[in-house]
Amino acid sequence: MTPIEFLGLYPFQWLAIITAGTAFFLMIDALVGHYRRAFAYRMQYAPVVTGTALVVAALLAAGFPDLPLLNQLLSWAGWLAAATGLVGFAYHFYYGIVTKPGGLKWILHYLMYGAPIFAPLGLTAAGVLGIITAHGLAGEHAVFGLVMPIALFLFVAIALAGAIAQAGILHYRGAFNNPAMYAPLTVPSLAMIAGVWMALAPSTVARAAFAVLLWMTLLVGFIGFGMHLRGLDREMGGLYLWHVNLLEGPPQGAPGLFIAWAAIGLVGMYLL
């Protein structure tokens, strides 16, 4: 396994950049969503802080891959973000569903309108990615007892599952008013399956299928950006009332997750 350089950067540098990008989009989403709730709990600042820390640490680690201190910093930031995500998940479940009027009996309502239940796990995923990246930058070939590409493929599969679940809930809330809203449920689901396949029983067929599906997932993400912007414009007042429609319309950063998770798979596949 020889790392392949791409556009002058080594694969784990790319992963560090992807980590930063993911954390950035998640942080923006948390900022917007928590602002919508007027930062009613102090904990709502946590993902903004740890997300920003992860962005900075990942960019530094990408820029100076040979500095062990920065590598260590990325690892710490990764653990911090991962922990924040887990706590956030508990908070989203408890304050976003359990303690709401009607509580768990209204779970279907609060999955749609309470705090987005899987969103904090996105931050956890970004954190884990940071940790994996830190190990990779340190020249290790395995992480959590798995060889690098396998670890990445499994990571992609799990991360995609979360993104698909959250997109599924919110697109259901939007009544799939545009058929394109099914795209992030179908293509990435297949990519997820192919990812597990590649991790457990790699073969040429699995590799080809996974590659195609990852590229398609990447495309879904890019198209998603455009569609979400269009969705914002379809709200009352459109871009003129962007300051409310940013809060009420489709989450503008969310499709970025599909791009990030797919890109990780592609890095694992082509560069490692």
Binding site: P101, G102, G103, H109, M112, Y113, R173, G174
Partner: peptide, 18 residues
């Protein structure tokens, strides 16, 4: 289409009924 988000007054009804 899906239901709307609950308003404050609706929360009161849900709370009381629950």
């Amino acid at each position: 289409q899906r239901e709307h988000e609950l308003s404050a007054s609706a929360n009161v009804l849900v709370r009381g009924c629950a």
